[in-house]
């Protein structure tokens, strides 16, 4: 009783994807709820009601995949370094501006920057860990929280200084192309699904898969997992934990950067764009279990759906409200995360 799971500080990283069956139950329940909405709300029965519902469902699912990816990076960092990185969203914004420069300035196809931006951001993340985060590793959690928060202010305002607050965007010339018989944007039952959102979802899953494989198969991945399970144990078997922490922070940042690249073609970019991703990924990371990489991915999709469906069910309220309600409920009832239990 005295040592609640919430306070334990070892053995956090989990790198397997395990989706309990009840998660599908929850997804099903959300869909049913939504369908019910189409029958009782003001827009009931009209085809428009169905369309709006379908639109919410697809939008939520597709953006949820990206949320999941961002959160995976954050969860990875927590799993190994046990710090809450409040600058994660700011790194994402920085990556988006990098991509914007490469796409808008240099003229590279935004998706091609997937080969450049995450790499650069890996270096940025690694450097920041080494210079700023590492010296504070022994400090109390709240100091680390503030440190990363200050870092996010620094990044955001540097971006403001460099690029001003004017919204930027990158648009694909081929967003409305057609591939064979398939025409973009896709229309399914009246709902419109834009190409970049599909690419973001699929690309997000691909990067997530790559991260999984890297962590579970490669040598470095094995070392990261070892450090994430037991820092002292890992150093005993010859893992250079300091270097692994630098690497992990870089990797987590690179994952956020990849997400940034993927969302840029359908979002407008401002120095504060990352804030929302930041807050959402905290919620998602707790939902999936701090340090549980697979949980973050699934949690991201759940939160994406919750946000959109919640927006429909409670019009006039912020889409974030149901998200925070779920967040608090998770903290209280299942602080180890929805898919927890594995960390015992």
């Amino acid at each position: 009783m005295s040592d609640a799971g919430a306070s334990s500080r070892t053995g956090r990283l989990q790198t397997r994807l395990h989706v309990p069956r009840w998660v599908w139950g929850v997804v099903l329940a959300l869909v049913v709820l939504l369908w019910r909405w189409t029958e009782v709300s003001d827009l009931a029965v009209t085809p428009a009601g169905r369309t709006i519902a379908l639109q919410a469902l697809t939008t939520g699912l597709l953006i949820g995949g990206v949320y999941g990816l961002v959160a995976m990076g954050l969860s990875l960092i927590f799993g190994v370094l046990e710090i809450i990185n409040f600058a994660h969203g700011a790194f994402l914004t920085l990556a988006m501006y990098l991509t914007w420069v490469l796409a808008d300035g240099v003229g590279i196809d935004p998706y091609l920057t997937l080969l450049i931006t995450p790499l650069l951001m890996f270096l940025v993340g690694a450097a920041v860990q080494k210079v700023v985060i590492n010296p504070a590793m022994g400090q109390p959690l709240e100091n680390q929280l503030l440190l990363t928060f200050a870092l996010s202010i620094l990044i955001e305002n540097a971006l403001l200084l460099a690029f001003s607050a004017n919204p930027r965007s990158v648009r694909l010339d081929y967003a409305n192309a057609s591939i064979g018989p398939v025409e973009f944007p896709l229309r399914i039952g009246g709902a419109i699904i834009e190409l970049p959102r599909i690419v973001a979802f699929v690309g997000g899953l691909a990067v997530a898969w790559a991260l999984f494989s890297f962590l579970n198969r490669s040598r470095v991945g094995t070392a990261i997992r070892a450090a994430g399970l037991n820092r002292t144990g890992a150093s005993l078997v010859g893992v250079n934990v300091d270097r692994i922490q630098v690497l992990t922070f870089g990797l987590g940042t690179a994952v956020a950067a990849a997400a940034g690249v993927l969302v840029l073609p359908f979002l407008t970019l401002e120095p504060t764009t990352g804030t929302q991703f930041n807050i959402l990924s905290f919620v998602i990371v707790v939902l999936g279990g701090l340090g549980n990489i697979g949980g973050a991915l699934v949690g991201g999709i759940l939160i994406g759906l919750t946000q959109e469906i919640g927006g429909l069910l409670f019009p006039g309220q912020s889409k974030l409200l149901p998200v925070f309600i779920i967040f608090i409920a998770t903290l209280f009832l299942k602080p180890e995360g929805l898919f927890g239990g594995g960390a015992e």
Binding site: A4, A6, S7, I84, L141, E142, L145, I279, F282, V283, V286, L290, G316, Q317, S318, L320, L321, F324, I325, F327, I328, L331, F332, L333, P335
Partner: peptide
């Protein structure tokens, strides 16, 4: 519910955010 450390801090954050969102509406 025995929230501690990071979890406690995040909960306080979430309560404030919820108030903000509720008042907004």
């Amino acid at each position: 519910y025995r929230l501690r450390g990071a979890y406690f801090a995040l909960a306080t954050f979430a309560f404030a955010e919820m108030l903000r969102l509720v008042v907004q509406g």
